[in-house]
Simulated assay, not measured.
Amino acid sequence: MPDLWEKLLLTGIVVAVALVLRLVLVFAIRRTVKSLVSRERDVGDDLGGRARRILARASGVSAERHRQRVETLGSLLRNIVDVVLLVVVVLTVLATFGVPMGPLIASAGVGGVALGFGAQSLVKDYLSGIFMLAEDQFGVGDLIRVGELTGTVQEVTLRVTKLRDASGTVWYVRNGEVLTLGNVSQGYSTATIDVPVAIDEDPVRVQDLLRTAVGRMDEEPEFAELLLEPPSVLGVGAMEGGTMTVQVLIKTGPNQQWAPMRAVRARAQRALAEAGVRGPILPGGVAPPSTPGAT
């Protein structure tokens, strides 16, 4: 009987030590998460409003996204701590009561190998999900390309990523199956607009007209939050048949190039038409008078 009470006392001590250790580790994890989130918020507060938004677009990160990623990793670490401590406590208690550990560990090893072979795809999915979160490859709201799929990220878990494409279809992609991934929403987007005119027009004059028409778009309120720098007239990009193509380059926040592209086309058409610049020469030598287009 005294021996039983001694074993129960040892069991209580083991459980108490495990609980105290869990409290310490969870407290450390939470403090670290809180510190990382606060540091990101402080850096954002030191910047001006537009500067902070431009920095977030250029780097592909934001304070909210950083907070979500850090908290997700913190939750994962807490779960790992719970599982490890539970396994250690159970094995220690069984050893205290004299349960043979050799056959138990051997059986667990064989079972683990069998489970590993049977659920290797599941383990692969979870490991890939952990690395995706840790490396911040993408987040909720990002527009990504996975194989032949292109869609907006709706949800990210350790096992699957949920995407919604342009037609509204929701796709579930296993993280372990993602071999090549493109994130359209990180960094910035660029677009080249082709402005076709008649091949015998003066290219220098056409470029000067385009610079006057679109060169200061980034200073206008409508486009100040979209354009990262003034549109750049690159010059003549191609000459074919009766068409000379002048190219304009814009650089915007991630996936925000569509509205500026339409505006550049409209302004280019209007400016060139007002200046009398002819459009591409059609087959047969006929050139539309002062009606250039943009593609």
Rank of each mutant, 00 (worst) to 15 (best):
G139P: 06
V170F: 09
V160Q: 09
D136A: 11
Q186N: 03
L127Y: 09
V184I: 14
T190W: 14
G182I: 13
V153C: 00
I144H: 01
Q154E: 13
A166K: 06
Q154V: 02
T161C: 02
D125T: 02
T152C: 13
V173M: 03
G112R: 04
F138K: 00
S121E: 06
T152S: 14
Y126G: 02
R164C: 06
S107C: 12
G151N: 13
G129F: 01
E177G: 12
R174F: 13
L179M: 12
T180N: 14
T157P: 04
A166P: 12
D125S: 02
A166L: 14
I130Q: 00
I144S: 00
N183I: 03
D165R: 01
E148V: 10
L179K: 14
Y126W: 02
T190Y: 11
A108Y: 06
L127T: 10
A191Q: 07
G176Y: 01
G176S: 05
K124G: 10
Q186D: 08
G151Q: 04
R174D: 06
G141A: 14
G112F: 12
G129I: 00
T157A: 03
K162A: 03
S189G: 15
M132N: 09
T192D: 06
N183V: 07
A134T: 07
L122D: 09
L179W: 14
A134S: 07
G182S: 11
T169M: 11
V110T: 14
D125C: 05
L179D: 10
F138C: 01
V170K: 02
Q137F: 15
T150P: 05
G118F: 07
T169Y: 00
E135C: 05
Y126D: 01
T190G: 11
R164M: 08
S189T: 15
T152F: 12
L143Y: 12
L127S: 03
G187C: 15
A134L: 10
V160H: 07
V153I: 08
L149A: 07
T190L: 07
E135D: 11
V146A: 06
T169P: 07
R164V: 13
T161L: 00
V123W: 09
Q120V: 11
T169Q: 04
V178S: 07
Y172H: 11
A119G: 03
G151V: 12
A134Q: 08
M132K: 08
G111N: 02
Y188F: 15
E177V: 08
D136V: 06
G139V: 04
V160D: 13
L149G: 08
L133W: 03
S128G: 14
I193P: 02
M132D: 12
V153R: 00
T169L: 11
I193L: 10
E148S: 06
L158W: 12
T150I: 08
E148D: 11
T190H: 15
E177W: 08
V140G: 01
L143M: 03
R164H: 15
S128W: 11
Y126M: 04
G118V: 03
E155V: 09
G129Y: 01
L115M: 13
V156C: 04
T150G: 08
G151T: 07
G147K: 12
G151I: 06
V160F: 04
S107H: 15
I130H: 00
V123S: 05
Y172F: 14
N183M: 09
